[in-house]
Amino acid sequence: MKKAFLSAVVVAAAVMGASSAQAKVVSISTILSDCKGYSDCLLVFGPNGKVLPSSVYVTEAEENLNGAQYVYKSTLASGNVNSLAYGDAIGLLEPGFTAKQGYSDIVGVFKNADGKYKLAFASDTDKKLVKSIVGFGTIATLNRQAETWLPVNVTSFLSPALQGNGDTAYFVSGVPEISSWLMMLAGFGALGLVGFSRKKANRLAV
């Protein structure tokens, strides 16, 4: 649980950071709002912070229909995808599950049969986790992360040209209701305030 919490904090910091000095920082609330009503989203934003048509939105019903090995691909042209990041896909693990059992999601650079690269992801269904998918590269090299409600910054999978232009990309899985994540953020803030108050009290007691 502690490990999952730390991972969430790290991801939150990554989300708030822009990949380029030209990029407009996209807030967590904007990312979650854009994905509201969907199970998983692969969002691409322009340098102005607006979501682009090349983003991918998938409902839980679509995931159950297509199966856990189905790959959802962005319409980004192959030249706008970072081919050097092929093999560096991110594997998200649900709490209590191991990589051997399977992933809730795999997101990264996918290599088509024709040799072209696509920004893509695969997602689990209600009954089945995602296993090895050849197009994402070797399963052993997946960057494993704990699945949380926070967006995962996947801007590194965009081409260097897009990154330099200020474009950004995020993957979101299991989107909570806006009221739910606001309560969670408020909770984190309250914990921080309590910690600060205790530290101040200890200093005064010395």
Rank of each mutant, 00 (worst) to 15 (best):
N48A: 15
Y86S: 12
D88V: 02
G87T: 03
Y72A: 02
K100P: 00
L52S: 12
S39K: 12
P53D: 07
Q101A: 13
V58M: 10
A113W: 00
C41G: 09
D114R: 14
E62Y: 09
A85N: 10
V44T: 11
Y38W: 13
Y103G: 01
T75P: 04
K100V: 10
T75L: 06
Y72D: 03
Q101L: 08
A61Q: 14
G108K: 12
G96D: 08
G67L: 04
G96H: 11
K36T: 11
K118G: 02
V44K: 02
S54H: 09
S54L: 02
T98G: 13
N66W: 06
L93V: 01
S104L: 05
A68I: 07
V56L: 09
S83G: 00
T98W: 05
A77C: 01
L84S: 15
S74M: 09
L76E: 08
D88P: 00
V58D: 07
A113T: 13
A68K: 12
S39Y: 15
P95E: 08
S39F: 15
E60V: 05
Y86Q: 14
K118A: 15
Y70C: 01
K50A: 14
G46L: 03
Q101W: 02
F121S: 01
V71K: 06
D34K: 05
A68S: 15
Y72Q: 06
A61M: 06
L65I: 08
L76K: 04
V56R: 04
N112Q: 14
G91W: 08
N80R: 03
Y57P: 00
D40M: 05
D88M: 13
G37E: 12
F97P: 00
N82Y: 07
A120S: 12
V109T: 13
D105Q: 14
P53H: 11
G49P: 07
P95G: 09
F121P: 04
Q69I: 00
L84Y: 08
D88S: 15
S78V: 05
S39Q: 13
K36C: 02
A68Q: 10
V107D: 02
N64D: 15
F110A: 05
Y103M: 12
Y103L: 10
G67M: 06
E94K: 15
G91D: 07
Y38S: 10
Y72M: 04
A68L: 03
Y86K: 11
N48Y: 09
G67I: 10
N66I: 00
G37P: 05
A85T: 06
Y103E: 03
F97N: 14
Q69H: 11
L52F: 03
T75D: 13
E62S: 13
K111H: 05
A77I: 00
L92E: 14
F110R: 05
T98P: 10
I106N: 08
N66F: 11
V44D: 06
E94M: 13
L76R: 02
L93R: 08
D105W: 09
Y86H: 15
G49K: 06
G91V: 04
V44I: 14
N64W: 08
K100R: 10
L42V: 10
